[in-house]
Write a protein that binds this DNA or RNA. Structure first.
Lengths: 145, 145
DNA sequence: GCCTTTTGGTTGACTTTGTCAACCAATTTC
DNA sequence: GAAATTGGTTGACAAAGTCAACCAAAAGGC
């Protein structure tokens, strides 16, 4: 039996998943990197989403977040609108095009996840997500309040 | 509760783990990217290891594998020796320096893994690795025999 | 209220990881 | 023995990530 270490399975799972998702997305004629997709989904899910929100939720460097957001803005998938409470900040809003794209993305991601979990029970998948979340939380630096 | 999707936990776990490992390695005064470390560990574990073996075991593009191996060779951690059975191929051998480095790396990686799994039981960790392996296998393209 | 500190976001420059194509020599296949 | 395949290499590029420096807005402290 191929007995991979924890670190090795995390690497390979990441790679497998990204490839699966990427293949699915290409089949759908979408040319967006995986990270852009994660960002769109974050914006979809979080009310009054800002760049800071995305960076935090995605555990990502703010410089990187800004760049992805700029790409998505230029592609017409999102818009930045003024935050009335903070002049430095902008709310991120999905455009019509962005929403349409996300419909496709959500379908593709469901397929990718289904492919990955086809040999697993729902309980096992749930356990996996729960355990992974515990690991993530165990090393997360708490955001300043 | 923060209910992350499968894809999101995989991303964030990957990121958390790499950062943990990277921090530990930096503390040890080792300046090697995580991928180099994975490669060294692969060479340590597999008898008669070749570039092809590494690429396959790590689910990685052979061009990328070659580059990492060249870096490690130049840094004096491994050596390429002739494969008597195949003129195209070389066996990869850890040098003394490479072995010493791996001793440190194995310690750091153990610490990183311990940190990540500190709130989990051994059973949960084992379940995680098993479930992850099933997912990886579900999308792996079988290597030509 | 003014000065200092912190924060949200941006840009530059760079590293790391990953991918695809084209190539060459060695091996395998038929 | 010629054709196909394979192991490995190099070039060129994209994607993901990091660090530093910067600016304007907000918060904090006196």
């Amino acid at each position: 039996m191929n007995n991979m270490s924890l670190s090795e399975v995390v690497h390979q799972l990441m790679h497998s998943y990204k490839k699966q998702l990427h293949d699915g997305i290409e089949n759908e004629g979408i040319l967006l990197p995986v990270n852009h997709i994660r960002t769109l989904k974050c914006i979809e899910r979080v009310p009054e989403c800002t760049a800071r929100t995305v960076a935090q939720r995605m555990n990502q460097d703010k410089a990187q977040t800004t760049r992805v957001l700029n790409d998505l803005t230029q592609s017409g998938f999102i818009q930045k609108t003024e935050n009335p409470n903070d002049g430095r900040s902008q709310f991120l809003v999905l455009t019509k095009t962005g929403k349409q794209l996300l419909t496709k993305i959500n379908r593709v991601e469901k397929q990718a996840a289904a492919q990955l979990t086809k040999d697993l029970s729902p309980k096992e998948v749930e356990a996996f997500v729960r355990i992974a979340t515990v690991m993530i939380e165990s090393v997360r630096v708490p955001a300043a309040s």
